[in-house]
């Protein structure tokens, strides 16, 4: 299941590339590029998940070491721990892809990483809870409980980032962009009237109302609604849990869109007029 999602994710990221056939190259720059790191961590994580699944599937539990406390350590435990760490690493890499862009004030914050981990974790646990409701009911309350807790934490951290971003004063202004200090500067043309890559890639073209609407939608769909559904389903209500996952997932899609829409890229200062 996890694997299927990861494969889907990988495929999606593949096809948003200009040159999927060269994707293998993207691991090259792990020393500097978070994207490169993500590209390395993702398959590693996939591998571990695969192995973890395989050990369970094959029911292969040779005790390798026994910890001082008497806990037996078999490969699935090691793989599990490794997987968990890699999952964190993956969230971290993905988040850092955005958070490391220092001039994107909305993204350049530890909150981006925290949000990533919490929201990712929340949806993961929600899904797990929903999945467990069908396959392993004994784990449902544990998973749903954690899902609820992490969702709640996510609510705090995401709200914090919203508050932070609302207060954010962009460091770059038209004045610094073109180096002229006058208070009133208006761009009249970007020089081209049919648009350009820079006007298509960085502008969502949606009115403020839509953006605000999306914000309220995801704030509801990611946090309170799934919370309620989780609580409702905590004792094995698989429909509620399924709904929690679906609602939260849709909310997260909206959150992603908003995340990009809210990013006030300094390059936009140069592309305020397609005329």
């Amino acid at each position: 299941m996890a694997l299927a999602l990861l494969v889907a994710g990988l495929a999606a990221s593949f096809f948003h590339l200009g040159h999927p056939e060269r994707a293998w190259r993207s691991a090259a720059m792990w020393r500097t590029s978070w994207l490169s790191r993500e590209v390395i961590v993702l398959p590693a994580f996939m591998g571990v998940v695969f192995l973890y699944g395989a050990t369970h599937w094959l029911d292969w539990h040779p005790v390798l070491v026994t910890l001082p406390g008497g806990l037996p350590v078999d490969p699935s435990v090691i793989l599990g721990v490794a997987g968990t760490l890699l999952a964190f690493a993956l969230f971290l890499c993905t988040a850092m892809i955005y958070a490391c862009l220092k001039f994107l004030g909305e993204w350049h914050s530890p909150l981006t990483v925290i949000n990533y981990i919490l929201l990712g974790g929340a949806s993961g646990f929600t899904l797990a809870a929903a999945f467990a409701a069908v396959t392993a009911p004994e784990l449902v309350s544990f998973l749903a409980g954690w899902a609820a807790i992490i969702t709640l934490l996510g609510l705090f951290s995401r709200s914090a980032s919203l508050v932070r971003n609302a207060r954010l004063k962009p460091k770059s202004t038209l004045q610094t962009a073109i180096g002229i200090s006058n208070r009133r500067i208006v761009q009249k043309t970007q020089g081209f009237m049919g648009g350009s890559f820079n006007t298509r890639e960085f502008f969502h073209g949606q009115p403020v109302l839509v953006v605000r609407g999306v914000k309220w939608f995801f704030m509801l769909a990611v946090f309170p609604l799934p919370l309620l559904l989780l609580l409702a389903g905590i004792h094995g209500g698989s429909i509620a849990l399924g709904a929690a996952f679906v609602v939260q997932y849709l909310g997260l899609l909206a959150e992603r869109w908003f995340f990009f829409a809210q990013a006030n890229h300094p390059q936009n200062l140069y592309y305020q007029a397609i005329a």
Partner: peptide
């Protein structure tokens, strides 16, 4: 080598790519 991931364009504050 470029895979067209556009990441660099997001990393350029000047919109030069």
């Amino acid at each position: 080598k470029c895979i067209g991931c556009k990441y660099c364009s997001w990393a350029c504050p000047y919109g030069a790519r």
